[in-house]
C-alpha cells in the first residue's frame, strides 16, 4: 500500500492505496465520489473525465498514486452556490439524456472553454472528441457549450 494525499473537490484526503488503484476507483470507492463513472477500459469514452490540477483528464487512465499531491475536481465539486454555467447550459439546451456521459462531458466542456472562451462549432466538436455520448448525437451538447461560452463571456462566471 502507498500513502497518497489528494485534494478532492476542495477537501484533502490522505489514504492508503494499492499502487494499481485507478484514480476513478479511488474517487468512487474510497472518497465516495460516485458521480464520476467508468465507461470503458481503453481510455476511449471519457465518461470518467475529471479536472486534475485544473486540466481535464481521464481518471480511468491515471493511477491514484500518480495523482498524489494533486487537486481533483469532479462533477460533484463543480458547482458553488449556483450551478456552473456549463451545467446550466446543458439543462437549458437538453444536452443530456441518460446522463452517463454527462459528468465527463461537462468537465471536458469546462476545460475546453477555459482554453478557448470563444470556440466555433468545429472547435467545440474537436474539443469534445475524447468523450463519447450515445444518446444525444452531440447536437444539443454542442449547442450547450456554445450557450455556456456566451453566458461566461457575459461575466456570469
Amino acid at each position: 500500500m502507498t500513502k497518497v494525499s489528494i485534494t478532492v473537490d476542495g477537501v484533502l484526503h490522505e489514504s492508503e492505496v494499492e499502487p494499481r488503484t485507478l484514480l476513478v476507483h479511488y474517487l468512487r470507492e474510497q472518497v465516495g465520489k460516485v458521480g464520476t463513472v467508468v465507461g470503458c477500459d481503453t481510455s476511449s469514452c471519457g465518461a470518467c473525465t475529471i479536472l486534475l490540477d485544473g486540466r481535464s483528464a481521464k481518471s480511468c487512465s491515471v493511477l491514484a498514486v500518480q495523482a498524489d499531491g494533486s487537486s481533483v475536481t469532479t462533477i460533484e465539486g463543480l458547482a458553488g452556490d449556483e450551478w456552473h454555467p456549463v451545467q446550466a447550459a446543458f439543462k437549458e439546451c437538453h444536452g443530456l439524456q441518460c446522463g452517463y456521459c454527462t459528468p465527463g462531458m461537462v468537465l471536458s466542456a469546462v476545460d475546453l472553454l477555459s482554453e478557448n472562451p470563444n470556440p466555433s462549432e468545429a472547435e467545440i466538436r474537436e474539443g469534445l472528441e475524447g468523450n463519447l455520448c450515445r444518446c444525444t448525437g452531440y447536437h444539443n451538447i454542442v449547442k450547450s457549450v456554445a450557450l455556456a461560452a456566451q453566458t461566461m463571456k457575459g461575466g456570469k462566471k
Binding site: 450551478w83 446522463g99 454527462t102
Partner: peptide, 21 residues
C-alpha cells in the same frame, strides 16, 4: 419544458447500479 431529471444527472447525484456498495 426543461427536464426534471437533469438536476441529479448534472451534479453527479445519480443512482447508478454500480454506485451501490
Amino acid at each position: 419544458l426543461k427536464r426534471k431529471e437533469d438536476a441529479r444527472l448534472l451534479t453527479g447525484k445519480t443512482q447508478w447500479t454500480d454506485n451501490i456498495q
